[in-house]
Amino acid sequence: MRATLMPVRIADDLYEFSVKDPPEARALAKALGDHPLALEVVAGLDRVAVQFAAKDETEVSRWLNQVAAPEVTHEDAADPIEIHVKYGGDTGPDFEAVCAALSLTRAELIELHTSLVHRVEMIGFTPGFAYISGLPDDIEIPRLDQPRTRVPAGSIGLSAAYTGIYALAGPGGWPLIGRTDAKLFDAARDPAFLLTPGATLRFHER
């Protein structure tokens, strides 16, 4: 018997669960997603939110208060997806600042970023935006105090120990280290998303 999770009410039409890590968040979102009372289920990195209709409040509360922690299954390791990146310069305006924050030279940061196999933990923010783990956990890169109002498509940023890729131009708060030409999201393509949660990838300097 797995432990019951305790959801927290985060809006009049939202409950949210806190979980241990992204694999558990993905597993819980999958377990809740097909329920008829759920209007929308969204996994964060360590949270899963469920949106519901006001008229269903009582039933939803009863349902979500008896949800057990999910079984986490291991995702298959397919070949890593190759992503080519132009680091620094105009395409990575915060590259130098990130080097300074980590006390790394330009070459060391690129070596660190390209030597590892990374994993897509979550797609979120805007269509196709990938949250990618792989950098050592002790890396702590703060977000920008004031988000940029426009970040170009393909921009690659770092935040905490995550790499993020902006699939579309739009506002963004992650310090930017480079850019890729890879098309992460294309509504006309099937599948529309290049990267999916759980997929592995490697970065290369272009």
Partner: peptide, 17 residues
């Protein structure tokens, strides 16, 4: 700072500013 979490229309976020 926090780990990226779900937001929806109506959510009020507060950056460090």
């Amino acid at each position: 700072l926090m780990k990226s979490a779900p937001v929806f229309p109506g959510t009020i976020q507060c950056p460090q500013s």
